[in-house]
């Protein structure tokens, strides 16, 4: 298993969230939307020129800014 950040994932790829490279505030915000360590995350789409990334966690789709996405580390098989 390799660990990459969310922005490096390809659309359609699924992985498991390993850790966050950010402060307590960021982690809390992500958690409140169900984005937390150990859960499955699927990248739905990215935008050109480092636009936001859409992911699916459980049944929720969330749009995440590129910078924030880089702080989410995902384990890929």
């Amino acid at each position: 298993m390799t660990t990459i950040d969310l922005s490096q994932m390809k659309a359609g790829q699924t992985g498991k969230i390993m850790s966050f490279d950010g402060g307590r505030g960021l982690v809390k915000r992500l958690e409140s939307m169900g984005i937390r360590c150990g859960v499955q995350i699927t990248k739905v789409s990215g935008q050109i020129m480092r636009g936001p990334i859409i992911v699916r966690v459980g049944n929720t789709q969330v749009a995440i800014g590129f910078g924030m996405a880089r702080k989410i580390l995902v384990g890929i098989d």
């Binding site: 939307m33 789709q61 969330v62 749009a63 995440i64 910078g67």
Partner: peptide, 10 residues
Amino acid sequence: SPEIFTEIPP
């Protein structure tokens, strides 16, 4: 300015 962080409803 903060980045976008929003739920995309079905």
